[in-house]
Design a protein around this nucleic acid. Structure first.
Lengths: 236, 236
DNA sequence: CGCCGGGTTGATCTTTGTCAAGCTCAGTGG
DNA sequence: CCACTGAGCTTGACAAAGATCAACCCGGCG
């Protein structure tokens, strides 16, 4: 487990910045607490104190916020390698929930260890970049939810997921496994689950997407990109 | 001008972190390029390279993204003291536009100077906190746009603006000046300007808000907060 | 005086939500 | 091996929210 932690974190950081030998050494010296948690497990909740940072070693996680009336907006999807609550190190208390979608293995880094990591300027830069990219994705989601019609939102979301999973080696040729219910998907794009179902049917009818269980196939990426007004600029 | 820059930036950082004498010295030593720009001026655009960071010394700025079909989502509103493109230091190229709402005086810090600032751990922590808070606000906006009905979105937005302007000493007793057209407001909350107009009328009819020119009065904050499901947790 | 950007209004249309029921299928326990 | 269960998916009927279109108004400004 400490092994996968180190390879996961260094791979992530290397994709964001350069690392020298001493940086690697610091990373290896960091104490991690590995944890296997079930699906649908609340890692940390809104308004809770955050005393450690999570690295997803395996599995899927989502960030969400809910209205006092109980309407949930999914704000972000996180895949292995992501550090979804880096903000917590500086803000200490969470402004949103973090929940597993599947069984996950998490690497937990105490905040004091995070402090030692970011003493290394290269590592700090990498982590800062990571939060910046997450923020850029979040902005695109706001645009998606605020300005596109339902079918375009869904097309856009599927393309983004495909792109990110491909980069992580978990999608190929537009085919990937996505452990989200239609209700979850609906909460990502801000529509009702009934309507999401109909939108999916339309995508299938037009031979843009096919789904069997939880695996998605993007059949015509070209036309999907037009429909979803998708462009990878924001994904860095 | 360098004077207002230093007081603005140190006030901002002090609200986020502790600063020691040496930190202050570094801040004072940073070269700033002051700039007076008109209203509706594009400070930096999506996909452009960012080579300097902006501190708003006076005036209002907004961040936005547009759909290829030309539909604009306003993603953030920035008030004096804010540094709206801090991300640019680490990501180098912008994922959204930054535009003035009013005539503004901006302090521009070259990226290399930002580099010198963040060598100071306290300053780095403060700036990181700043981006974290902006991200938290952005998440709340996504929730707003994705899960609330139009009138609640508007109520929520007005309360947030009131709160932030009050903290900045630019609003008092729920009264503030907001240089946004109804079209701009509509693009903040993802509805059409016609519908925004009707929503505003309803808020006026119910004696929750009154407006004269660009000054807004929140007449019944209690009921507005219920209506907008507003809670200040996310504003730190 | 005339123009123009912004605000306001009414009529109409579209998209999306809600409700309620039925269906499917993997997993469970007898 | 089979009935039962429950979560998630699908469907239809209907209602509501909000978009669009087209005028028109109003006040500031060249």
């Amino acid at each position: 487990l400490p092994g996968t932690f180190i390879t996961t974190l260094t791979a992530k950081l290397r994709s964001l910045t350069e690392l020298d030998a001493e940086d690697l050494q610091v990373i290896e010296s960091v104490a991690v607490h590995g944890k296997l948690v079930p699906a649908d497990y609340r890692i940390v909740g809104e308004n809770e104190k955050s005393s450690q940072c999570v690295v997803i070693l395996n599995g899927f996680v989502y960030g969400s916020k809910s209205t006092p009336l109980g309407r949930r907006q999914i704000l972000s999807l996180h895949i292995p390698g992501d550090m979804p609550d880096l903000q917590g190190y500086h803000l200490k208390t969470m402004d949103h929930d973090l929940t597993t979608l599947t069984e996950c293995t998490l690497g937990l880094i105490a905040h004091e260890s995070v402090g030692r990591l970011i003493e290394r300027p290269r590592i700090a830069a990498g982590l800062w970049r990571e939060t910046g990219i997450q923020a850029a994705i979040s902005r695109e989601w706001t645009l998606n939810v605020g300005q596109r019609e339902a079918i375009a939102r869904v097309a856009h979301l599927l393309l983004e997921i495909n792109h990110r999973l491909t980069a992580a080696g978990r999608a190929k040729d537009g085919i990937f496994d996505l452990p989200l219910t239609q209700g979850d998907l609906a909460d990502c794009v801000g529509i009702s689950s009934v309507h999401l179902n109909r939108v999916l049917q339309q995508l299938r009818r037009e031979k843009l997407v096919s789904t069997t269980r939880s695996t998605y196939r993007l059949l015509d990426k070209k036309r999907l990109e037009e429909l979803g007004q998708f462009n990878t600029n924001y994904l860095y």
